[in-house]
């Protein structure tokens, strides 16, 4: 009964230096039934010299990953970089971005939003939830983003923390839904504490409040997230067909082997889809 649906994913768990908290969050996510989480590193570009963080390896966090509720597989942990951009120069795709499984951009102005939708090499575009949206969502860039397979992300943790934020979250997401008609949206937590996560079914239901239809809300926590992850994987490949990688060390551990195998599979799938 538990897992007849596609796998649930939460693609935004904030990185904290405190390892214990991070472990707790991931354990809670596994308990709630999420099969994939992404640890989010934020790159604030307002500072003079932005330093791109390095993703911590999973083996540092866990010796044995917790098993997902209702499944026999361990949870999958990805890394994600969010670039907060107020100026076009802030988003510079380079080799450091490639260390992350997913790249997201948080555009603060309309011009940047347009650029992010149409040209930037990203997987996710974040939507403001903590203040009033400073610009209207225009149909052209939003449709462009959906066609390119870039997804819009709505974070629900601020809505849980505070009633004013809740108004902004619901208002802004309703504004987005007017333009995108519920397509190309993902819902994720942005949790900093383990108790800020919510169950996937609860979030699918919460999507109704955010203006999504029932099917779209379910897709927003499952299938859409899957497309985002696959999109992120193909970013490191050439058209999703060829992938170069370093020769693995002589004795790879079982988990690493699994992962590379999974990647190859999905790259193959993607290639098929494109043909």
């Amino acid at each position: 009964m538990v897992c007849k649906m596609a796998m649930f994913m939460d693609l935004n768990v904030n990185f904290t230096k405190d390892k214990k908290t991070l472990q707790n969050i991931i354990e809670t996510a596994a308990h709630l039934g999420y099969s994939t989480v992404a640890i989010n590193y934020t790159l604030e570009s307002q500072q003079k010299k932005p330093e791109i963080p390095k993703p911590t390896s999973i083996s540092d966090l866990f010796t044995k990953l917790p098993v997902v509720q209702g499944r026999s597989r361990p949870i999958r942990v990805l890394s994600r970089l969010t670039v907060v951009a107020t100026d076009p120069s802030h988003f510079r795709p380079n080799a450091e971005y490639k260390a992350f499984d997913l790249v997201a951009v948080f555009p603060k102005t309309e011009k940047l939003f347009h650029a992010a939708c149409m040209t930037f090499e990203v997987d996710i575009i974040c939507v403001t939830v903590t203040e009033k949206q400073p610009f209207h969502f225009k149909r052209a860039p939003v449709n462009g983003a959906i066609d390119r397979g870039v997804f819009f992300e709505i974070v629900y943790t601020p809505a849980i923390r505070d009633s004013t934020m809740r108004r902004y979250t619901i208002g802004n997401s309703l504004g987005l839904m007017e333009t995108c008609k519920g397509k190309g949206v993902i819902l994720s937590s942005g949790a900093e504490k383990p108790l800020e996560l919510r169950g996937p079914y609860d979030i699918a239901n919460l999507g109704l409040v955010f203006g999504l239809s029932e099917g779209d809300a379910k897709a927003a926590v499952s299938t859409n997230c899957r497309s985002v992850v696959l999109n992120g994987e193909t970013r490191t490949t050439a058209f999703g067909i060829i992938r170069t990688m370093k020769k693995p060390p002589p004795a790879p551990t079982a988990s690493e082997e699994d992962k590379s195998e999974e990647r190859e599979n999905s790259a193959a799938k993607r290639a098929k889809m494109e043909h």
Binding site: Y156, A159, I160, R166, L195, D202, I203, N205, L206, V209
Partner: peptide, 11 residues
Amino acid sequence: RILWSALPFIS
């Protein structure tokens, strides 16, 4: 559904 959508806001 109205009841359910309020449950996530209990912290």
